[in-house]
Design a protein around this nucleic acid. Structure first.
Length: 463
DNA sequence: TACATACAC
DNA sequence: TATGGTGTATGTA
């Protein structure tokens, strides 16, 4: 009964779309990803070549294994974000752990992590029981991988433009005095931080309290984290300007993926580098000083990774010839789609840390992971992920392309509450918001889901 | 279909 | 001052 904190949502799956004239039509079946089995095993097994041709900052050895391990388990990573190279991760992790104490949230993180450990053990077990023949690299697998590489030998030139610390940068325009102080956007939850704050380990998705403690303690009380409330109206305005500028460079393929990321495919373009450089200058001028970084490559996925490499205010071209080399040097976590859990599974079950190792152990990957996941990972290992499918389409303006929207939802968090009458009122408010959204977008649905988050951060979904 | 997970921004 | 909101894909029963 002590489930007090509750979060209610109301997702809605839409398979029909109401037409302007009020009639409905069946939605075409969602683009089923063309998926084929990547062949089955027999081939060479591989021993452990631990090559490290890594351009990205490596985790340096830790002075305190325990803190590190715990912090890692709880997904506290102080590194691996632009502007966070060479900071004292150990010290930061210690403070975060101490300040997080035994909050309900941290306890939930521990429970979740234990589940992941369970998966690790399960896969390890499966590996133990398997014979090396089960995960050999077959000719078929290699044919498939070669196929991916050949198929995408098209002339695409993908560009990803990513605004630098976007929300923060918008706020800094009117508050230049915060440039050299630790500052962030967001109160309870930090949305983004400036580069000074990042030196203290303050980063997005961090609780405000933790950010404040980090700055206070790491500066011996000399500095204080300045928190600016978010102002999405401003960010949307700036984003619109950015999109307008960038659209001129690729009116046909330009897709706004979020407020601060844009994808282009400018085809075979001579002097791309110069063009993108000019584009970035143009963006900066039009927005009154916002900088962005860009990646240029044959696929959006590689371009996206590349856009991060020279952040802030930089760009990187990964030409077709150097794509493999680039991918192989990559820590797997840099691959979009590989998050905390997948990284852990790869590391602890397969001893895979880099793109190269992912490729070398492709037989193992194919054997251990589900087909869709294996295919994604293997494509990634040869620099071919995310071509046909993922960035399918995204409304460049606003709601027009809600044609293929798969769901619509609203959710709100609030402090623990166990009074059913009050909870009902909350549910009603949220439902009303959702229903208005749906009317506005003229969408229909056929499944309603209610999501409840308990005070201990467990989440329940009921359809 | 129902539910849970993982992931991205 | 104590951890967000929206959407997609995938896995499994």
């Amino acid at each position: 009964m002590s489930n007090s904190k509750i979060k209610i949502v109301n997702p809605y799956t839409k398979h029909k779309r109401k037409l302007p004239d009020g009639t409905e039509k069946e939605k075409p079946p969602s683009n089923k990803e063309i998926r084929r089995d990547i062949g089955n095993a027999t081939g060479n097994s591989d021993t452990n070549t631990n090559t490290n041709t890594n351009n990205f900052p490596k985790n340096t050895g830790s002075s305190n294994i325990n803190v590190s391990a715990q912090a890692a388990a709880l997904c506290i990573s102080a590194s691996d974000k632009a502007g966070m190279e060479g900071i004292d991760r150990e010290k930061i992790a210690t403070i975060i752990l101490k300040e997080s104490g035994n909050s309900a949230y941290i306890q939930q993180q521990r429970r979740r992590d234990e589940k992941v450990n369970e998966r690790v053990r399960h896969l390890q077990q499966r590996l133990q029981e398997a014979s090396p023949r089960d995960y050999r690299v077959t000719d078929e697998l290699d044919d498939t991988l070669r196929g991916y590489q050949q198929r995408q030998a098209n002339r695409a030139t993908c560009v990803v433009v990513d605004m630098d610390m976007f929300y923060m940068a918008c706020e800094l325009l009117s508050r230049p005095h915060l440039n050299d102080k630790p500052a962030c956007v967001g109160r309870e939850m930090i949305l983004t931080s400036n580069y000074v704050a990042r030196r203290y380990g303050v980063r997005s998705a961090m609780a405000g309290l933790i950010g404040r403690k980090l700055v206070e303690q790491l500066s011996d009380g000399r500095e204080k984290l300045i928190q600016v409330p978010s102002n999405f109206k401003l960010y949307k305005e700036k984003s619109k300007i950015v999109n307008e500028v960038i659209r001129e460079y690729d009116p046909h393929n330009m897709k706004a993926y979020s407020l601060d990321e844009v994808y282009l495919d400018i085809g075979p373009y001579l002097a791309v580098e110069e063009v993108v450089f000019r584009l970035r200058q143009h963006v900066k001028k039009a927005t009154g000083g916002l900088t962005c970084s860009a990646g240029i490559a044959r696929t959006h996925t590689i371009a996206k990774i590349a856009s991060d490499a020279n952040k802030p205010n930089g760009q990187l071209v990964v030409d077709p010839v150097s794509t493999l080399e680039f991918v192989r040097a990559l820590p797997v976590r840099k691959i979009p789609g590989v998050g905390r859990v997948t990284e852990k599974l790869l590391q602890q079950v397969c001893n895979i840390h880099t793109g190269l190792e992912l490729y070398e152990k492709r037989g193992l990957v194919q054997f251990l992971f589900q087909p869709a996941t294996a295919e994604f990972l293997l494509k990634s290992s040869v620099g071919c992920s995310g071509e046909g499918s993922s960035f399918a389409s995204f409304g460049t303006e606003q709601e027009e392309s809600s044609d293929h929207q798969k769901g619509i939802s609203r959710e709100r968090s609030f402090s623990p509450e166990s009074d059913w009458a009050l909870l009902n009122i909350k549910l009603e408010e949220i439902s009303r918001m959702l229903s208005e959204d749906m009317k506005r977008k003229s969408v229909m649905g056929h499944t309603v889901t209610v999501k409840v988050k308990l005070a201990n951060f467990d989440v329940l979904n009921r359809a």
